[in-house]
Protein backbone atom coordinates (compact mmCIF):
# COMPACT_ATOMS: atom_id res chain seq x y z
CA UNK A 1 0.00 0.00 0.00
CA UNK A 2 1.49 3.29 -1.02
CA UNK A 3 1.05 5.76 1.81
CA UNK A 4 3.73 8.11 0.58
CA UNK A 5 1.32 11.02 0.46
CA UNK A 6 0.74 10.54 4.17
CA UNK A 7 4.48 10.28 4.75
CA UNK A 8 4.99 13.60 3.04
CA UNK A 9 2.43 15.32 5.20
CA UNK A 10 0.86 13.65 8.17
CA UNK A 11 -1.03 16.69 9.40
CA UNK A 12 -4.23 16.32 7.41
CA UNK A 13 -6.01 13.54 5.61
CA UNK A 14 -5.05 11.36 2.72
CA UNK A 15 -7.14 9.31 0.34
CA UNK A 16 -5.91 6.22 -1.37
CA UNK A 17 -7.74 3.99 -3.82
CA UNK A 18 -7.40 1.07 -6.14
CA UNK A 19 -8.27 1.42 -9.81
CA UNK A 20 -11.97 0.85 -10.38
CA UNK A 21 -12.51 -2.62 -11.93
CA UNK A 22 -14.30 -2.16 -15.25
CA UNK A 23 -16.99 -4.62 -14.26
CA UNK A 24 -17.91 -2.46 -11.26
CA UNK A 25 -18.95 0.32 -13.63
CA UNK A 26 -21.29 -2.01 -15.45
CA UNK A 27 -22.82 -4.31 -12.86
CA UNK A 28 -24.62 -3.50 -9.61
CA UNK A 29 -22.15 -3.65 -6.76
CA UNK A 30 -22.13 -4.38 -3.07
CA UNK A 31 -19.99 -2.04 -0.97
CA UNK A 32 -18.75 -2.41 2.60
CA UNK A 33 -17.58 0.34 4.95
CA UNK A 34 -15.44 -0.12 8.01
CA UNK A 35 -12.84 1.67 10.06
CA UNK A 36 -9.65 0.93 11.96
CA UNK A 37 -8.00 2.87 14.75
CA UNK A 38 -11.02 4.62 16.15
CA UNK A 39 -10.17 4.02 19.80
CA UNK A 40 -6.41 4.54 20.09
CA UNK A 41 -4.98 7.74 21.49
CA UNK A 42 -2.13 7.46 18.99
CA UNK A 43 -1.98 7.54 15.25
CA UNK A 44 -4.50 7.96 12.46
CA UNK A 45 -7.99 6.59 12.05
CA UNK A 46 -8.55 4.88 8.73
CA UNK A 47 -11.85 4.52 6.95
CA UNK A 48 -12.12 2.07 4.09
CA UNK A 49 -14.62 0.92 1.52
CA UNK A 50 -14.39 -2.28 -0.44
CA UNK A 51 -16.70 -3.22 -3.28
CA UNK A 52 -17.34 -5.86 -5.92
CA UNK A 53 -20.18 -6.79 -8.26
CA UNK A 54 -23.02 -8.64 -6.54
CA UNK A 55 -22.42 -11.40 -9.07
CA UNK A 56 -18.86 -11.88 -7.79
CA UNK A 57 -19.61 -11.80 -4.05
CA UNK A 58 -19.02 -15.55 -3.83
CA UNK A 59 -15.53 -15.03 -5.25
CA UNK A 60 -14.80 -12.44 -2.59
CA UNK A 61 -16.07 -14.81 0.10
CA UNK A 62 -13.82 -17.50 -1.39
CA UNK A 63 -10.83 -15.39 -0.36
CA UNK A 64 -11.94 -16.24 3.18
CA UNK A 65 -11.95 -12.64 4.31
CA UNK A 66 -12.99 -12.27 7.93
CA UNK A 67 -13.28 -9.60 10.56
CA UNK A 68 -9.82 -8.04 10.63
CA UNK A 69 -9.73 -8.30 14.42
CA UNK A 70 -9.81 -12.10 14.22
CA UNK A 71 -6.88 -12.20 11.82
CA UNK A 72 -3.20 -11.90 12.50
CA UNK A 73 -1.28 -9.06 10.93
CA UNK A 74 0.36 -11.39 8.41
CA UNK A 75 -3.02 -12.92 7.48
CA UNK A 76 -4.40 -9.45 6.91
CA UNK A 77 -1.43 -8.50 4.78
CA UNK A 78 -1.80 -11.70 2.76
CA UNK A 79 -5.54 -11.12 2.23
CA UNK A 80 -4.93 -7.55 1.17
CA UNK A 81 -2.42 -8.74 -1.41
CA UNK A 82 -5.00 -11.26 -2.67
CA UNK A 83 -7.59 -8.53 -3.00
CA UNK A 84 -5.10 -6.55 -5.05
CA UNK A 85 -4.57 -9.59 -7.24
CA UNK A 86 -8.32 -9.80 -7.72
CA UNK A 87 -8.34 -6.20 -8.86
CA UNK A 88 -10.37 -7.19 -11.90
CA UNK A 89 -13.48 -7.36 -9.71
CA UNK A 90 -12.54 -6.03 -6.25
CA UNK A 91 -11.99 -2.34 -5.66
CA UNK A 92 -11.24 -0.36 -2.53
CA UNK A 93 -10.62 3.16 -1.32
CA UNK A 94 -9.62 4.57 2.00
CA UNK A 95 -9.27 7.78 3.95
CA UNK A 96 -6.48 8.17 6.45
CA UNK A 97 -7.46 10.77 9.03
CA UNK A 98 -4.36 12.02 10.79
CA UNK A 99 -4.39 12.34 14.57
CA UNK A 100 -3.86 16.06 14.05
CA UNK A 101 -7.03 16.25 11.98
CA UNK A 102 -8.91 14.32 14.67
CA UNK A 103 -7.57 16.57 17.43
CA UNK A 104 -8.29 19.83 15.66
CA UNK A 105 -11.78 18.64 14.68
CA UNK A 106 -12.75 17.50 18.14
CA UNK A 107 -11.16 20.51 19.85
CA UNK A 108 -12.54 23.07 17.41
CA UNK A 109 -14.42 26.16 18.49
CA UNK A 110 -17.42 24.30 17.21
CA UNK A 111 -16.78 20.74 18.30
CA UNK A 112 -16.85 18.22 15.55
CA UNK A 113 -17.14 14.95 17.38
CA UNK A 114 -15.66 11.66 16.35
CA UNK A 115 -19.01 10.15 15.40
CA UNK A 116 -19.80 12.99 13.03
CA UNK A 117 -16.31 12.87 11.62
CA UNK A 118 -16.71 9.11 11.11
CA UNK A 119 -20.14 9.42 9.49
CA UNK A 120 -18.99 12.16 7.17
CA UNK A 121 -15.88 10.24 6.19
CA UNK A 122 -17.88 7.09 5.45
CA UNK A 123 -20.39 9.11 3.46
CA UNK A 124 -17.57 10.76 1.58
CA UNK A 125 -16.09 7.43 0.60
CA UNK A 126 -19.40 6.06 -0.69
CA UNK A 127 -19.82 9.25 -2.69
CA UNK A 128 -16.26 8.88 -3.95
CA UNK A 129 -17.10 5.40 -5.28
CA UNK A 130 -20.20 6.78 -6.98
CA UNK A 131 -18.18 9.64 -8.45
CA UNK A 132 -15.73 7.13 -9.84
CA UNK A 133 -18.56 5.42 -11.65
CA UNK A 134 -19.03 2.41 -9.40
CA UNK A 135 -22.63 1.18 -9.69
CA UNK A 136 -23.28 0.92 -5.97
CA UNK A 137 -26.51 -0.99 -5.27
CA UNK A 138 -26.04 -2.07 -1.66
CA UNK A 139 -24.00 -0.59 1.17
CA UNK A 140 -23.14 -2.39 4.40
CA UNK A 141 -21.70 -0.40 7.24
CA UNK A 142 -20.28 -1.31 10.61
CA UNK A 143 -22.05 1.06 12.92
CA UNK A 144 -20.67 4.01 14.79
CA UNK A 145 -23.13 5.19 17.38
CA UNK A 146 -26.76 4.08 17.09
CA UNK A 147 -27.25 1.90 14.00
CA UNK A 148 -30.82 3.06 13.35
CA UNK A 149 -30.10 6.78 13.18
CA UNK A 150 -26.91 6.19 11.24
CA UNK A 151 -28.74 3.99 8.75
CA UNK A 152 -31.51 6.55 8.38
CA UNK A 153 -29.02 9.29 7.71
CA UNK A 154 -27.10 7.27 5.13
CA UNK A 155 -30.30 6.09 3.49
CA UNK A 156 -31.48 9.69 3.14
CA UNK A 157 -28.14 10.68 1.70
CA UNK A 158 -28.16 7.82 -0.82
CA UNK A 159 -31.82 7.20 -1.64
CA UNK A 160 -31.04 4.98 -4.61
CA UNK A 161 -28.91 2.58 -2.60
CA UNK A 162 -29.99 -0.10 -0.16
CA UNK A 163 -28.20 0.76 3.07
CA UNK A 164 -27.67 -1.63 5.99
CA UNK A 165 -25.99 -0.39 9.14
CA UNK A 166 -25.28 -3.02 11.75
CA UNK A 167 -23.13 -3.58 14.78
CA UNK A 168 -20.46 -6.18 14.05
CA UNK A 169 -21.08 -5.85 10.33
CA UNK A 170 -17.38 -6.57 9.85
CA UNK A 171 -18.00 -10.11 11.09
CA UNK A 172 -21.34 -10.58 9.34
CA UNK A 173 -20.71 -9.37 5.80
CA UNK A 174 -17.63 -10.42 3.82
CA UNK A 175 -17.58 -7.14 1.94
CA UNK A 176 -17.35 -5.30 5.27
CA UNK A 177 -14.67 -7.76 6.44
CA UNK A 178 -12.74 -6.92 3.29
CA UNK A 179 -13.09 -3.20 4.03
CA UNK A 180 -11.97 -3.78 7.61
CA UNK A 181 -8.86 -5.56 6.31
CA UNK A 182 -8.01 -2.64 4.01
CA UNK A 183 -8.49 -0.20 6.87
CA UNK A 184 -6.47 -2.20 9.35
CA UNK A 185 -3.59 -2.84 6.95
CA UNK A 186 -3.39 0.87 6.19
CA UNK A 187 -3.61 1.87 9.84
CA UNK A 188 -0.89 -0.59 10.85
CA UNK A 189 1.36 0.54 8.06
CA UNK A 190 0.77 4.21 8.83
CA UNK A 191 1.54 3.73 12.51
CA UNK A 192 4.60 1.61 11.85
CA UNK A 193 6.09 4.09 9.37
CA UNK A 194 4.79 7.23 11.02
CA UNK A 195 6.69 10.30 9.91
CA UNK A 196 6.76 12.58 12.90
CA UNK A 197 6.31 16.20 11.94
CA UNK A 198 8.41 17.19 14.90
CA UNK A 199 12.13 16.83 15.15
CA UNK A 200 12.11 14.59 18.15
CA UNK A 201 15.05 13.46 20.17
CA UNK A 202 15.23 10.10 21.83
CA UNK A 203 12.02 8.95 20.24
CA UNK A 204 10.81 5.67 21.64
CA UNK A 205 9.08 3.58 18.97
CA UNK A 206 7.61 1.21 21.51
CA UNK A 207 4.20 2.77 22.10
CA UNK A 208 2.28 -0.43 22.64
CA UNK A 209 -1.14 -0.90 21.09
CA UNK A 210 -1.93 2.80 21.11
CA UNK A 211 -5.06 2.16 23.15
CA UNK A 212 -5.47 4.39 26.17
CA UNK A 213 -5.72 1.50 28.60
CA UNK A 214 -2.42 -0.02 27.48
CA UNK A 215 0.20 0.70 30.18
CA UNK A 216 2.88 0.86 27.51
CA UNK A 217 0.96 3.50 25.60
CA UNK A 218 0.42 5.50 28.77
CA UNK A 219 4.10 5.27 29.64
CA UNK A 220 4.99 6.42 26.14
CA UNK A 221 2.67 9.41 26.45
CA UNK A 222 4.18 10.42 29.77
CA UNK A 223 7.66 10.10 28.40
CA UNK A 224 6.94 12.26 25.37
CA UNK A 225 5.22 15.18 27.06
CA UNK A 226 6.74 18.49 26.05
CA UNK A 227 5.84 21.08 28.71
CA UNK A 228 4.85 23.82 26.26
CA UNK A 229 3.75 21.98 23.13
CA UNK A 230 2.24 19.01 24.86
CA UNK A 231 2.71 16.03 22.59
CA UNK A 232 3.86 15.34 19.07
CA UNK A 233 1.00 15.48 16.57
CA UNK A 234 1.02 11.68 16.52
CA UNK A 235 -1.06 11.92 19.70
CA UNK A 236 -4.77 12.69 19.68
CA UNK A 237 -4.91 15.65 22.03
CA UNK A 238 -8.67 15.31 22.26
CA UNK A 239 -8.46 12.00 24.11
CA UNK A 240 -9.14 12.17 27.81
CA UNK A 241 -5.98 10.16 28.50
CA UNK A 242 -3.89 12.71 26.66
CA UNK A 243 -5.66 15.64 28.29
CA UNK A 244 -5.24 14.32 31.80
CA UNK A 245 -1.53 13.70 31.29
CA UNK A 246 -1.16 17.24 29.96
CA UNK A 247 -3.02 18.66 32.94
CA UNK A 248 -0.54 17.07 35.27
CA UNK A 249 2.68 17.26 33.34
CA UNK A 250 2.50 20.17 30.93
CA UNK A 251 2.07 23.90 31.39
CA UNK A 252 -1.42 25.31 31.51
CA UNK A 253 -2.78 26.96 28.38
CA UNK A 254 -5.73 29.32 28.24
CA UNK A 255 -7.65 29.96 25.05
CA UNK A 256 -9.99 32.80 24.34
CA UNK A 257 -12.93 30.40 24.14
CA UNK A 258 -11.70 28.57 27.24
CA UNK A 259 -12.49 25.24 25.65
CA UNK A 260 -9.55 23.51 27.20
CA UNK A 261 -10.96 24.47 30.56
CA UNK A 262 -13.86 22.07 30.13
CA UNK A 263 -11.96 19.25 31.68
CA UNK A 264 -10.22 21.35 34.23
CA UNK A 265 -13.09 22.26 36.47
CA UNK A 266 -14.62 25.64 37.06
CA UNK A 267 -11.98 26.68 39.58
CA UNK A 268 -9.27 27.25 37.08
CA UNK A 269 -11.48 29.08 34.66
CA UNK A 270 -12.75 31.54 37.20
CA UNK A 271 -9.27 32.20 38.43
CA UNK A 272 -8.41 33.16 34.88
CA UNK A 273 -11.00 35.89 34.87
CA UNK A 274 -10.38 37.21 38.32
CA UNK A 275 -7.76 39.88 38.03
CA UNK A 276 -6.63 39.53 41.61
CA UNK A 277 -5.61 35.94 41.25
CA UNK A 278 -3.29 36.63 38.40
CA UNK A 279 0.22 37.70 38.85
CA UNK A 280 1.09 39.59 35.76
CA UNK A 281 4.50 40.94 35.12
CA UNK A 282 4.61 44.67 34.94
CA UNK A 283 7.74 46.35 33.95
CA UNK A 284 8.13 49.21 36.32
CA UNK A 285 6.39 47.50 39.14
CA UNK A 286 8.32 46.31 42.03
CA UNK A 287 7.32 45.92 45.62
CA UNK A 288 9.64 45.58 48.50
CA UNK A 289 8.77 41.94 48.98
CA UNK A 290 9.53 40.77 45.54
CA UNK A 291 12.74 42.67 45.34
CA UNK A 292 14.00 40.76 48.31
CA UNK A 293 12.62 37.46 47.26
CA UNK A 294 14.15 37.75 43.84
CA UNK A 295 12.14 38.09 40.69
CA UNK A 296 10.67 34.73 40.06
CA UNK A 297 8.35 35.68 37.23
CA UNK A 298 10.04 33.21 34.95
CA UNK A 299 8.51 30.42 36.91
CA UNK A 300 5.26 31.38 38.44
CA UNK A 301 3.47 33.97 36.44
CA UNK A 302 1.14 33.42 33.55
CA UNK A 303 2.42 34.58 30.25
CA UNK A 304 0.28 36.60 27.95
CA UNK A 305 -0.54 35.61 24.41
CA UNK A 306 2.56 33.62 24.02
CA UNK A 307 5.25 34.98 21.84
CA UNK A 308 7.56 32.23 20.88
CA UNK A 309 11.00 33.41 20.54
CA UNK A 310 12.82 31.28 18.08
CA UNK A 311 16.26 32.60 18.84
CA UNK A 312 15.92 31.46 22.40
CA UNK A 313 14.40 28.08 21.90
CA UNK A 314 16.54 25.41 23.44
CA UNK A 315 16.64 23.21 20.41
Amino acid sequence: MDLSELDRDSTGRCRLNSPVPAVCRKEPCILGVDEAGRGPVLGPMVYAICYCPLSRLADLEALKVADSKTLSESERDRLFVKMQEDGDFVGWALDVLSPNLISTSMLGRVKYNLNSLSHDTATGLVQFALDQGVKVAQVFVDTVGLPDTYQERLQQRFPGIEVTVKAKADALYPVVSAASICAKVARDQAVKNWHFVEKLQGLDADYGSGYPNDPKTKAWLRKHVEPVFGFPQFVRFSWRTAQSILEKEAEGVMWEDSLTGDQEGPGRITSYFSEGARVRPRLPHRDSKSSHAGRSRERDSPAGPMLHHGAQSHD
Partner: peptide
Protein backbone atom coordinates in the same frame (compact mmCIF):
# COMPACT_ATOMS: atom_id res chain seq x y z
CA UNK B 1 -3.66 31.71 23.76
CA UNK B 2 -1.92 32.14 27.03
CA UNK B 3 0.65 29.66 28.14
CA UNK B 4 0.63 30.04 31.88
CA UNK B 5 4.37 30.06 32.22
CA UNK B 6 7.31 31.85 30.76
CA UNK B 7 10.08 29.57 29.71
CA UNK B 8 12.11 28.57 26.70
CA UNK B 9 10.31 26.23 24.33
CA UNK B 10 11.57 23.99 21.52
CA UNK B 11 9.82 26.04 18.84
Amino acid sequence: CEVLVSRPAPV
